[in-house]
């Protein structure tokens, strides 16, 4: 079984995001970039499927700027077998929307014919939570989002999903798209020898135009602003004062 894992290069989750003063977006100049944390979990799960003998090949795909190569090298160092970079943007500030990403991925999948796509449930930059669902729709495949447990059995997969009220388990026909949630696994760190080895693994490069996909955005960004700041209130000396204040405000 072949597993395809789309990965996105995003601002590192430890970096404090700064909104540009002119309202045009978020400042990405000289900011550390990393693999989207949810995508790391997807790569880890794919590699575990390979280690368990369920999968025989793991292919990582990234769509974005040329520098997303580094993100793909990380996936290769974790254990993916090969990678495909699709250059679709010249500047990191140009975010390719999930619909366009899904269209490009569909074209890649038509060529690669994987049985399973494992994707992060959302990217921590645009927080759209959409690519997996959109890809599944375009392919007419089954989808299981927000997975916290995955079991592949022959022609189907049993997936436990994180939903509002608790957990839902569904059985999906393969091929399928599974998007992963935080609790599915703990991704490994790439070891130095594996990082060295990853440099020799195949990494193909294409462009969005090669697949004939128009990546121009459907959503025009009018402005990007800082969220409204909340003012700090007061420090109360003891529980009695706290109770008195809450009674004054009429909430207890």
């Amino acid at each position: 079984m072949k597993v395809l894992v789309p990965v996105k290069r995003v601002i590192d989750y430890n970096v404090k995001v700064r909104v540009k003063a002119d309202g045009s977006g978020v400042d990405l100049a000289n900011v550390k970039m990393s693999m989207n944390p949810f995508d790391e979990i997807a790569v880890e799960e794919a590699i575990r499927l390979k280690e368990a003998g369920t999968a025989d090949e793991v292919v990582a795909v990234s769509i974005g700027v040329k520098q997303a190569q580094e993100t793909l090298r990380t996936a290769l160092a974790m254990g993916a077998d090969r990678a495909i970079l699709i250059v679709a943007a010249a500047d990191a500030h140009q975010d390719i929307e999930p619909l366009a990403v899904a269209k490009i991925l569909k074209a890649v999948i038509d060529e690669e014919q994987p049985n399973l796509v494992l994707a992060g449930k959302q990217a921590i930059d645009n927080d759209m939570n959409a690519t997996g669902q959109m890809l599944s729709a375009l392919l007419g495949w089954s989808q299981a989002t927000f997975a916290s447990k995955l079991e592949v059995n022959g022609d189907n997969a049993v997936v436990t999903r994180e939903v509002d009220g608790g957990l839902q388990t569904i059985k999906v026909k393969l091929p399928a798209i599974v998007t992963v949630d935080l609790r599915l696994n703990q991704p490994r760190y790439a070891s130095l020898p594996n990082i060295m080895k990853a440099k020799k693994k195949p990494l193909g490069e294409k462009t969005a135009a090669d697949y004939g996909v128009d990546v121009s955005p459907r959503l025009e960004v009018v402005k990007t602003a800082e969220p409204e700041a909340r003012q700090a209130g007061e420090i109360v000396p003891d529980v009695d004062t706290l109770v008195a204040k809450l009674k004054e405000r009429g909430v207890v």
Binding site: P98, M128, A130, M134, L135, S136, A137, Q143, V163, R218
Partner: peptide
Amino acid sequence: ATSDAKNVMPRVAALLDVMVISD
């Protein structure tokens, strides 16, 4: 924007060839 809707609505959007606007 419940977990159910987040599961379903991007699929609806892609079937209609439009972008979803989440959350």
